[in-house]
Design a protein around this nucleic acid. Structure first.
Lengths: 111, 111
DNA sequence: CTACATGTGTCGTGCTTCTATATATGTAGA
DNA sequence: TCTACATATATAGAAGCACGACACATGTAG
């Protein structure tokens, strides 16, 4: 990749949900989380490091994820984040909240 | 109404869109805008005055809406906001952006 | 040896929404 | 009459979040 033309401009509040969802299937490191979101969003959402790492620290401080240094697939060390029980509940909650919010906005917009 | 139990917690960036959309059919005053959003969202979105008026002033400064003091239906004076041409274009733009954003988030969430 | 990808992190800025507060008037009810 | 309440606008301060810019370290391909 030489140039990055994808611009994310995340709506405030959605990043936590995206991270929790991305980490849900299996523990993953920050760099991988951003990559995964980029792929799943079909290049639409590029999470910036300046947003990613503070968010991860925030989530960890809240007890929604835990971190552990492990060896990555390529042999390098990376900080793997895993969802806690509370985090899983929070994910369910935020999923539901997002769906409701999108629905409600839809009501207003199609009026 | 004695107590207000509806809590909005708007996602940052969506308020402008809601306001532009609400004002699109006909000029309306701030208080009416909040009421209309409340009704259309089926009591889900209660726009706070502390969010509403700064947003209106912001939009006016950007040239997306214009204001004019007029008599309300009940004979009281109120500041009516109307969409400008630029505002109408911006509304179309933000409508499209919201739809795309919701779609993209959907891709990530259903993965 | 020079990029580039991988990988984590902080700092300061800017923007937005919220809570709390202030102000003013008209109306309905006790 | 006095007391709420609905109507109507507005600001100040706080809090939160995403972002751009920067810093650092290592491995690998050309």
């Amino acid at each position: 990749m030489t140039t990055r033309d994808t611009r994310s401009d995340l709506l405030q509040g959605t990043l936590d949900l995206l991270i929790l969802k991305t980490v849900a299937p299996a523990p993953l490191h920050g760099y991988g989380i951003a990559q995964r979101i980029l792929v799943l969003s079909r290049e639409a959402l590029q999470v910036q490091q300046g947003s990613l790492y503070p968010a991860l620290h925030r989530l960890e401080k809240k007890g929604l994820i835990t971190s552990e240094w492990k060896e990555s697939e390529n042999g390098r060390m990376a900080k793997f984040y895993a969802l806690t029980k509370t985090g899983r509940k929070q994910l369910e909650l935020e999923l539901e909240q997002w769906r409701r919010y999108a629905q409600v906005i839809g009501w207003v917009l199609q009026a």
